[in-house]
Amino acid sequence: MTDLPRNHFKAALAAMQVQRGLWCQITDPLVAEMAAGAGFDWMLFDTEHAPLEVPSVLPLLQAVAPFPVSAIVRPRVLDVALMKKILDHGAQTILVPMIQNAEEAALAVAATRYPPRGIRGVAGATRAAGFGRIAGYHQRAHEETCLLVQVETASALAQIEAIAAVEGVDGIFIGPADLAASLGHPGNPAHPAVKEAILDGIRRIRAAGKPPGILTMDPVLYDAALGAGAIFVSKAIDLLVLRNGLKP
């Protein structure tokens, strides 16, 4: 039999150890494999905004599996069926967008846990279960499953403490782009009011005992977010790294 894989990213977050990552929108497994050896702590495969669907995530997970990097998958929406398939494909960490309140956070938690702890659908011979070779997988999977939720509207920021209090939420990510739009500054996450809201949110997440996360290409905000207590952070999107490197 096979042991349940340890989720090193979840353990690092629980210990409040900073984890630096790469946001991935390129759909090619060869690119994912190359990037997996670059030294990042985590890589996030984005099915919300990138041209990725759940089936196309599987070869990306397979490509990075041999490397010491943790794979995160973002579903396009809080959807129990989508999250079930992502977990069955072998993702141990999920980042759920647009969580507005504690009730939605609780549903996201339930989607990542088998009954009686939650409502995740049960299948046997999945990649996540080692194709049936991991003893006790259905009883223990939640131990190594990491759930991250996104707060990215003004109303969601007001609910940070309630969301953080939901058992099973392992981290809270602030989405600067959608937050900027919610605050009346679409396309301008660098606006001072947006930056202040982000940093205040990070401080409140830490005060609530949860690790905060952020993606920003603004080096000043990136450093300020770390200073405010951010734990899982990214300042790089693979597609933009490629774009910026293409110089005629």
Rank of each mutant, 00 (worst) to 15 (best):
D3C: 01
N7Q: 07
N7H: 05
H8C: 09
F9P: 08
K10Q: 10
K10D: 12
A12S: 11
Q17W: 03
V18A: 10
V18P: 01
Q19C: 14
C24M: 15
C24E: 04
Q25Y: 15
I26V: 14
T27F: 08
T27N: 05
D28A: 09
P29Y: 04
A35R: 06
A36S: 15
A38N: 07
A38H: 14
A38P: 00
F40V: 02
F40T: 03
W42M: 05
D46M: 02
A50F: 05
P51L: 01
P51G: 05
L52E: 04
E53P: 00
P55W: 06
L60V: 05
L61Y: 11
A63D: 06
V64H: 02
P68W: 09
A71Y: 09
V77H: 13
A81N: 14
K85H: 14
L87D: 15
D88H: 12
H89N: 15
H89D: 15
H89Q: 15
Q92K: 08
T93C: 11
I94L: 15
L95S: 13
I99W: 00
I99M: 02
N101S: 06
E104Y: 05
A106S: 11
A108G: 08
A108F: 07
A110Q: 13
A111V: 03
T112V: 03
R113H: 13
P115N: 09
P116C: 05
R117K: 15
R120L: 11
R120C: 06
G121P: 05
V122G: 10
A123S: 13
A123L: 09
A125R: 13
A125Q: 13
T126G: 02
R127I: 01
R127C: 03
A129M: 03
G132W: 06
G132D: 12
I134T: 10
Y137E: 10
Q139C: 02
R140N: 15
R140W: 12
R140Y: 14
E143Q: 15
E144S: 11
T145L: 08
T145I: 13
L147T: 02
L148P: 10
L148S: 10
L148Y: 10
V149T: 04
V149S: 05
Q150Y: 07
Q150V: 06
V151R: 09
I163Q: 10
A164M: 01
G168E: 03
I172P: 10
F173Y: 15
F173K: 08
I174K: 13
I174A: 13
D178Y: 06
D178L: 09
L179K: 08
A180W: 03
G184R: 02
G184M: 06
N188P: 03
N188C: 07
A190I: 00
A190G: 14
H191K: 01
A193T: 09
V194N: 09
A197Q: 13
I198A: 04
I198S: 02
L199D: 11
L199M: 07
D200V: 07
D200G: 07
G201W: 12
G201I: 05
R203A: 15
R204I: 01
I205H: 12
R206K: 15
A207L: 04
A208F: 02
K210R: 14
K210I: 00
P211C: 03
P211V: 02
G213C: 10
L215C: 08
P219N: 02
Y222L: 13
D223S: 08
A225P: 12
A225N: 06
G227H: 05
G229D: 05
G229M: 00
F232H: 15
V233D: 09
V233S: 06
V233N: 11
I237P: 01
L239P: 00
L246I: 12
P248R: 14
